[in-house]
């Protein structure tokens, strides 16, 4: 009987006692969300801007080189690669397929590589590139905001960077992200990526 008086203050006290639980759940929700983020993928500052001004010589013995002017006039995929880059081998067959099936023009940016090693690599795994610029000191890479190899940039017919892929392109990335982007860019539509 005397218990009937108690519930009012007890309920108020429970409001405070429940606070750590609520805070913990909120923190847990944030951390759970964090598990599915990819902090190693830094969003590019160059999306929607014109490709940086540059002119690179070819890898010695494999002309032609690559310059900004080459990127205007058609949709192209600029692929940053190096013979010392192991994950580049993983995406290489897909780049070969893009070239063989004439899906999109693929240009190469050979990042900090020895010419002989780069030539040997292209001979061994195949050469999917239309033009390749040799970026021996990595300075053009910095202009493109490159911070790891491989990276790939989709450039539209007006020479603007419309999409960037960080890391090796997987078959899934190609199907779900790059191919739709390439199709949209070719149709002159806005690219979402």
């Amino acid at each position: 009987m005397s218990d009937e008086q108690a519930p009012r203050p007890r309920r108020l006290r429970f409001g405070f006692a429940g606070l750590p639980l609520v805070a913990f759940l909120a923190l847990g929700a944030f951390l759970l969300h964090g598990l599915y983020l990819a902090p190693e993928e830094i969003p590019s500052a160059l999306i929607g801007t014109t490709a940086p001004e540059f002119a690179l010589p070819p890898i010695e013995g494999r002309p032609p080189g690559l310059a900004t002017a080459d990127l205007a006039g058609g949709v192209s995929l600029v692929n940053v690669f190096a013979s010392w880059c192991i994950t580049c081998r993983q995406e290489h067959p897909l780049l070969m397929r893009l070239m063989e099936e004439d899906v999109v023009t693929v240009h190469g940016l050979n990042y900090k590589d020895e010419p002989a090693a780069a030539l040997g690599w292209l001979k061994r795994f195949g050469d999917p590139y239309d033009r390749v610029g040799a970026d021996r000191n990595g300075r053009v890479g910095i202009d493109w905001g490159v911070y790891g190899v491989p990276e790939s940039f989709l450039v539209d017919a007006r020479g603007r960077i419309v999409c960037k892929h960080i890391g090796a392109i997987s078959a899934h990335d190609l199907e779900s992200k790059l191919l739709p982007a390439i199709r949209a860019a070719k149709a002159g539509e806005a690219v979402e990526c």
Partner: peptide, 8 residues
């Protein structure tokens, strides 16, 4: 640097 890599 921000022009190339963003605020990041």
């Amino acid at each position: 640097l921000v022009a190339r890599y963003g605020d990041w």
